[in-house]
Design a protein around this nucleic acid. Sequence first.
DNA 1: CTTGCATTTTACCGGTCGGTCAACTAGTGT
DNA 2: ACACTAGTTGACCGACCGGTAAAATGCAAG
Lengths: 201, 201
Amino acid sequence: MTIATDTRSRIIAAAKPRFHSRSYANVGIQEICESAGVQKGSFYHFFPSKRDLVIAVIEEFADDWANGFVAEAFDPALPPMERIDYLIDAAYFWQKSIKQVHGRMLGCIFGNLTLEVSTQDDIVRAKLLAIFSRAKSRFQDTLDQAVASGVIAPLDTSRTAEAMLAYLEGVILLAKSQNDPELLYRLGPAIKTLRVEKAGG
Amino acid sequence: MTIATDTRSRIIAAAKPRFHSRSYANVGIQEICESAGVQKGSFYHFFPSKRDLVIAVIEEFADDWANGFVAEAFDPALPPMERIDYLIDAAYFWQKSIKQVHGRMLGCIFGNLTLEVSTQDDIVRAKLLAIFSRAKSRFQDTLDQAVASGVIAPLDTSRTAEAMLAYLEGVILLAKSQNDPELLYRLGPAIKTLRVEKAGG
DNA sequence: CTTGCATTTTACCGGTCGGTCAACTAGTGT
DNA sequence: ACACTAGTTGACCGACCGGTAAAATGCAAG
């Protein structure tokens, strides 16, 4: 049952930076195949459709994050609110390094795809939703711990977590419109001022 | 110098809902022409390229907003912070009504286009940037007045305005991923908790 | 050595993409 | 009556789109 070739992963590897930098619709299967050194017929042996490829790409990006910056940021050894600082920092440095290499701020692949395809493909949207949902849980757990340890005043951790995730995506969007990751640096820390009070409070 | 026909505006009118709901790349000029009852050659009489069309579409959307909800929300007669409430409400009801008619939450056309094309077309990006810049100014003026009248504690109104705009775009993005405008209703009001302190404070 | 399956190759499909072109129409000013 | 021009028409361009089919290959188990 081991994988016989690396064709599938080469396709995904070729697709990742392209979908990230030039959107879903603007990258053709032909181009991906050429870049991966794969024939088109071979592509369709591994992926029933273009949609299946983008879902695989989303999963790989999510894994990269989960095993990289996110794992570092949401380290239980860190004080809760410092984890959020860490995550913002990580997002900033990542976008900055991409811009240095690529000349452009590419933003968040999940946000990009959400706005591009979520009105047209409910399956892709569901995949993105699941990833945002996991991200929200990370924020919420952190906030729960911060409240429990008395670092911040009690609040609606579920909604505040969503608000923080939204803010992060929004700052990345605005930074992309300026092609300038420094906006993340300037506006990022304000994420901790966001508060949704408890319904009964 | 008056306009001889309404062809140009019919093209824009046909393009607006399509770019809004299905992105830029996924809507072809042929489809727009058919819907507007215009020949393709006639299209290129009015628009040198597809890019010029999308810029005209962006301008019309911006005018719609500026003369509609935005003018109402940023009414100088309203207390400053209530204007922000009003704007959030307006965004919520707009998205909700779109979903009722269209079955989908389409989100903000400016945010949508920013994430889709701003890495590929600096001219379109500049147009979007100008619109965000104007929106930021509205927020900032409001915050300046709120500070001046003592309704809120002094803060960095420029950066807080940017943060608020980012938050609004982020909440719309997240709501679109859930295809649910109610998220705007639940998270919107937290926009007023955002604060970027003055550098020297 | 052979069967069988996973993988790869190559050629091909109908349709659409953004954009061009030259001919034609209709209205205006002189 | 004339010329000029804005607007319109419909045919056309090469390139690319996502996807298909069948034949060829390589490899491993029997």
